[in-house]
Amino acid sequence: MQTVWVFPGQGSQAVDMGADLFNQQSSQEKLQIAQDILGWAIADKCHKEITELSKTQFTQPCLYVISAILIDILKSKGYSPNVLTGHSLGELTALYAAEVIDFATGLELVRERSLLMSQATTGGMTALIGFDRAALEAVIAQTAGVVLANDNSADQVVISGDIEAIKQVCDRVKTKRAIPLPVSGAFHSPMMAGAAEKFTQILAKVEFKDAQIPVLSNVQPHQPTTDPTKLKSLIAQQMTAPVRWREICLYLQSSGYEQAVEIGSGKVLTGLIKRTASNLKLFNISNLNQLAEYVSVNQN
């Protein structure tokens, strides 16, 4: 069965996520490596109130580590997908799953990325639900300082940029809901150029290996690749480029994929896939019970 593994990004965090993983013997090495790299314990942050956990510098490492632990368990049971992808941060998790980078290197990149993003203090992001897409795209094109940052589905997007520009778009386009997001800056927009330049310099010092499983990028959603140079270039562009998730889903639907497995906290991505690629069979693996259910349905 043609299968894609998908990995969540910021916004999928929840208090006590990963709780049943933290006492597993197989998780201890990664949790210790994480504490050594980060200077704080993943389990402790996941038990904090949501306002603390939702700070970018904590959210991103926690999501990455939980997904990585689940990836290792699935691989130890002999499971492997045909392609990998992730939403924003989740693309770095996909690079770990593809063995482009090892766990510690991936977490170091996530730490640096999350710190750079948390230090962005200008601009903002607003989620829009239910709108006329042509009208929205026309207004964005006419409004300086705002971009379509996350194209999640036909009727759910996130716009990013200057606060006043975002307000102008919201005033001019009729939507069912407009929800300002609790983020520090205008992620996935040109306003992240400074942070992106610093992250590119960090990436330049890291060796990327050939992907053992093709990775589908947020920046290039129609061409999975195993090329390490290409993958490094794409992840460098991602901080200022839009997340083209709707197009990823359309690619999966048109390319014969039959099953999507969301690995990590929450079920945001399977919800979005269902809206665009309804033919795919969907699974969520965020804890050991769900992992056991998946194994029972998909016996190797």
Rank of each mutant, 00 (worst) to 15 (best):
T85W: 03
G86V: 03
H87Y: 15
S88A: 10
S88Y: 06
G90T: 05
E91T: 10
A97C: 14
A97V: 05
A98I: 02
E99F: 02
E99Y: 04
E99W: 02
I101C: 14
T105V: 09
G106D: 01
E108V: 07
E108A: 11
L109K: 11
E112K: 13
L115Y: 11
L116T: 04
L116F: 10
L116N: 06
M117W: 11
Q119A: 12
A120E: 12
T121Q: 15
T121V: 09
G123T: 11
G124I: 05
T126R: 10
G130Q: 04
D132L: 03
A134M: 00
E137H: 07
T143K: 09
L148T: 02
A149R: 10
S153G: 04
I159H: 06
I163M: 13
I163L: 15
K167A: 08
V169K: 14
C170G: 01
C170L: 01
K174R: 14
T175F: 06
T175I: 04
T175D: 04
R177H: 11
A178I: 02
L181W: 09
P182A: 15
G185R: 08
F187P: 11
F187K: 12
H188W: 03
F199P: 09
I202G: 00
V206M: 02
F208G: 05
F208Y: 11
F208S: 03
K209S: 12
D210E: 15
